[in-house]
Design a protein around this nucleic acid. Sequence first.
RNA 1: GCACCCGUAGCUCAACUGGAUAGAGCAACGGAUUACGGAUCCGUAGGUCGGGAGUUCGAAUCUCUCCGGGUGCGCCA
Length: 641
Amino acid sequence: MLSSFKGELSRLLAERIQALFGVEYEPGVEVPPRRELGDLAFPAALHLARTLKRNPRGIAEELAADFPSPAFVRDLRVEGAGYLNFFLDRSLVASQLLSEPLIQPDSTAGERIVVEHTNINPNKAAHVGHLRNAILGDVLSNVLRALGYAVEVENYIDDTGVQLADVVVGFTDLRKMAQEQVAALPEPFDYYCWDLYSEVGRWYEGNPERPELRRLALQALGHGGGPRAEMGRLVSRRVVSRHLATMRRLGISYDLLTHESAVLGLDFFSEASEQLKSTGAVHFEAEGKNAGCWIMPLAASEEFAGLEDPDKVIVRSDGTVTYVGKDIAYQLWKFGLLDKDFQYRFWQAEEVWETTVDGEPEHPIFGKADRVINVIDARQSYLQKIVRAGLEALGYLEQANQSIHFAYEMVTLSPATARQFGFLDDDTEEEARNLEMSGRKGIGVKADDLIDQLEAKSREEISARNRDLSPGDLDILAHQIAVAALRFFMIKATTNRVIAFDLDEALSFEGDSGPYLQYSAVRALNIGRRLGEAGLPTQVSPEDVAGLPPEVWADDLWDLVLAVALIPQKTEAAGGSLELSTLARHALELAQKFHAIYHRHPILQEQDVAIRSARLATMQVFVRGLTVLSDLLGLPLPDRM
RNA sequence: GCACCCGUAGCUCAACUGGAUAGAGCAACGGAUUACGGAUCCGUAGGUCGGGAGUUCGAAUCUCUCCGGGUGCGCCA
């Protein structure tokens, strides 16, 4: 594959730089914007210009002169401001792409990584904001696994928090329903809770005694006893079950559900607390506004410079632990730094392990990670920093360093979509700003509603094109297309940009969309089928490809081959930078190139065998590349559409 | 007040982390021989990269400073 070519050239270049200039330099590689310029570009001379105080072009020319080019290099030129550009043997590269696996896991990568994502409060239906989290987390896990890491996916369930408490109040105090009645409510249960949750919010307003009910419920959830706690368990159970079903529709699953009730029930914090107190990371505050609390000072860390209040409360004056305190304890567990462990039980119906206080003796090993990646939206950056600072204060510098907050910006609703759903008045158009979603206010587009709409839309499109499809096949295809549309929509956005969710945009199946990618794959399959029907070979062997004369590789064919060759590099970069959108864009680029070639270079009626072989080989390379990327992105590839 | 994110074509966004002529998709306009499926392709038009200054061979990208928008900074989670 290309990375071996690339590695070879980098090595040769580094040696040459060392020999000529006596400088240690690790060359980076780029792909020139146009193929006439070359296939691989080394900007080494540009970078060396400063240290050597010399004209970059002059340096490049010196490097190029008598360069010991290996056999797979056809030509070497100095271009632009001082790029060292290599032209490769096209047949050789294409042949290798067909004979070797595209991404080979790094054998040194066997590191354990915990990826936490989804983390939806178990008190209401999932909305599109949650989908961004889950899809990013899922793609990240795929990428890391492909790179050779041992990945454990965790989904944290806050089953002792205020959000759940409010819905418990809604059932027991507002609706005055018994447990059996709640258990008997028909699906979709999470939709019912969605409405109830915002109703409770309104019910509290102006009635000082009602929020007191929340305190009662919260207390019950924390201690795990009494009818309110029972109700909490029931609601949480049913809602989580729905969330898992929603995510399953998108191909997303988990290795472990971690329950906050287990963190509390097993008293993880007391263990963490010992560590925090004995190392002096937290101390007791005798006076001032935090009198009676255990606090963690943040002033020492320059990350928190300029903070109004440089102290963070970890234990409240009533002895209860704050959210941050729990999170630090949980983070310690993930790294295996806590002497305690969870108990585990396998949830048969959902086929997933979960944490409990009293579990099964036999279970897989969880936690004990070398690296922890928390997929949490950017609004929680401050808290994630504090958790990290906590590990630092405890002296776990390595683990603090490996505590990674995968931050992404939130999803809001576009004015048009907000209006469509009745969250904005039609006449307030001068205030046409994006609307933040809010579970509390019931503002948001539910995940299942969106998937349903996507499926309906694709079903309509498919049935108009394929009259002969059975209802069963129609369902499968409609689902595959809907999943691709949704997942691609979420991944193509760069993480640090707010997505203003617009329904019409999400339902668009043209241009840069998941279905566009799928369509390119379907076309490639069709060519193979038609070749078979015409009695022509449907495949070219890597050996035959290696022997093709150079002139059969038109620039646009070669351009696509080269783009496929870059997939390993792109995947590594995405895993390292946590910018997954680059993979979506690269997949799109492949599909665009393929579609263009499809029109310009017909295969079926091409008489020249060598040219037909090159085109066919390009198609095979494309299918390989697109399949790899689709697997990473979780986009199903249908066989027709 | 302090911190983080965003500002690029009419709209939604890219630009390989300082590189080559700033690119895509929508929308608009014009085209693609009864051609491997038109969810496609080709073309036209569309830009003071928010403003200004600085750093250097070279800036959409780095620094400073304004302007505009978003978010965060609890003994909530």
